[in-house]
């Protein structure tokens, strides 16, 4: 089943400034076929995903919405190569990741995917710049190049004056900007975000997601994010609804969509 509701009347025009990092537009960034995921709890088996087919175009910013427990986060984990589905096939950026050994999957994630997490997941002992530098170090960018790039990324998210601040000294919005900068570090082709605005008030959440959209489009990234936040629906090229482990048409009165304050 592959159903989706486009939030925007017209697809966004890609403003790819970096042709090296921009994906091949003809190849979908994400292709999932027949994804099923079951968890064993004691004697019982819980089927969280019941056969998901999904295709996300390169350069799109898409939202994954649905009620709690619908399987959104599980799907995001599978699409990010963190969880292995019980059955089904996943291709990212034209490469099948199903059945890849763990170390190759890790390497693929490192080279191609940037992650943004609900709780920011910044290293509390590292400054804003160091959080980004550490990610660049992981990707093999070290020394001055890493420092320079981390400062550039912080400037892009409007935190040029916070390079030496520790996460505890930053507001929620500032932390999420650092998290976005970190996700963009090393020019990934794909950004996966899990409830990136959950810890922010709606206005700040919207502003930050606008920023993410802008930067992602500039860098030619494909963005897929799980969210409950209806205020950011307008930044998406498409919204995909998941309910009870399946992709569904847009519900008439989606109860899982948090009303704006």
């Amino acid at each position: 089943m592959q159903l989706a509701f486009r939030q925007r009347p017209q697809p966004m025009t890609l403003m790819t400034s970096n042709p090296d990092t921009a994906g091949d537009l003809a190849t979908p960034a994400i292709q999932a076929k027949g994804i099923e995921m079951a968890f064993q709890v004691g004697d019982q088996q819980f089927k969280v995903l019941k056969g998901i087919d999904l295709e996300i175009k390169t350069g799109d910013v898409e939202l994954l919405m649905g009620p709690s427990g619908s399987g959104k986060t599980t799907l995001l984990s599978i699409l990010g190569g963190i969880l292995t589905p019980t059955s089904g096939q996943v291709s990212l950026l034209g490469q099948s990741i199903t059945g890849l050994p763990r170390h190759k999957l890790s390497k693929f994630r490192l080279q191609n995917i940037g992650f943004i997490f609900q709780g920011f997941n910044l290293f509390p002992a590292l400054t804003a710049a160091e959080n980004i530098e550490a990610t660049l170090n992981l990707k093999g960018i070290r020394g001055r190049a890493a420092k320079k790039q981390s400062i550039k990324l912080l400037r892009q998210v409007g935190l040029a004056d916070k390079t030496r601040s520790l996460p505890r000294d930053l507001s929620g919005g500032q932390k999420q900007r650092v998290a976005i900068a970190r996700a963009l570090a090393g020019n990934p082709k794909l950004i996966l975000a899990d409830e990136p605005t959950a810890a922010l008030d709606s206005q700040r959440g919207h502003t930050i997601m606008e920023l993410l959209r802008k930067l992602a489009k500039e860098e030619g990234c494909t963005v897929l994010m799980v969210t409950h936040d209806p205020r950011i629906m307008d930044i998406a090229d498409r919204v995909v609804y998941v309910e009870d482990g399946l992709i569904t048409p847009k519900p008439a009165n989606p109860s899982f969509v948090h009303k704006p304050e």
């Binding site: 490192l110 992650f115 997941n121 290293f123």
Partner: peptide
């Protein structure tokens, strides 16, 4: 105490050896 950060590193693609 830093499990979430190490998990984040793993999710981002860090090898176990790192």
């Amino acid at each position: 105490d830093h499990l979430r950060e190490f998990g984040t590193m793993k999710a981002m693609g860090s090898s176990d050896w790192y």
